[in-house]
Design a protein around this nucleic acid. Structure first.
Lengths: 119, 119
DNA sequence: CGACCTAACTTACGACTCGTAAGCGACCGT
DNA sequence: ACGGTCGCTTACGAGTCGTAAGTTAGGTCG
């Protein structure tokens, strides 16, 4: 029972892969950062400006995490002042489907008032 | 289906709806809780048992948040001992696509090695 | 030639959130 | 009466976050 080698698609059981993923991209601001990066390469200050409430401290922290996970890459251009661009890797771009799915849900079920009438 | 006005699909800009959604379902353990609830109605203790590391304190907190958002409903059966079942609402079930998208990504891009063989 | 500017961080610290453990209330079997 | 179960709730130290200030490396301005 426990040594099942063929797991088709068990939804109920705990999946460590899913858990790792959702705890990573679900960290505070990470979703917004990833969504903002879908459009292409961005700079540090672009992200700060694009995401209201996000501070440079947290952005720096999140970008490091995402870089460590192989989701974004950091390109340094030693110009003046220093220009640094962040780009999604293939792995990061693959998150687009998941981000769009969440976006679609958010738009479809936006809480206008209390639509819990249907029970 | 889409109320096409003037914005086709802006991905880059900050979307408060997406942000609210991702910060909600991305809270610690919430993803795992929702995934575990996709299988149907569950009890408090089932969730604690199914999700390693999740404590009853946090589960209680998360379930309250999800209930407040209209994502889960709480049914009380005054048996002995009290039996309480949590079920996803229609809004909660609508998250299935998003959860599956994250699961698919997690399985496709699991960290161990670069998928230079698969693709 | 030195005060000031920029981009991208880093440090410091109080506030908020989480993890661990313990307690509570209603009921029941012994 | 005593201990056991379920679903919480409270307490408190540890961890994470928000806000503000400092740092580095170079350039502009007066």
């Amino acid at each position: 029972m426990a040594t099942v080698t063929t797991m088709d698609h068990e939804e109920s059981v705990f999946c460590p892969l899913f858990h790792h993923a959702v705890e990573l991209i679900g960290r505070r601001w990470t979703g917004a950062i990833l969504k903002a990066m879908l459009s292409g390469k961005v700079r540090f200050s672009d992200l700060v400006a694009a995401i209201p409430g996000l501070s440079d401290r947290l952005l720096s922290e999140r970008l490091k995490e995402l870089e460590a996970e192989g989701i974004v890459v950091r390109h340094v251009y030693p110009e003046t002042p220093v220009r640094i661009e962040y780009v999604l890797t293939e792995k990061g771009l693959a998150l687009e489907a998941a981000i769009h799915a969440v976006t679609a849900w958010a738009e479809a079920w936006a809480t206008p008032a209390q639509p819990s009438l249907s029970r």
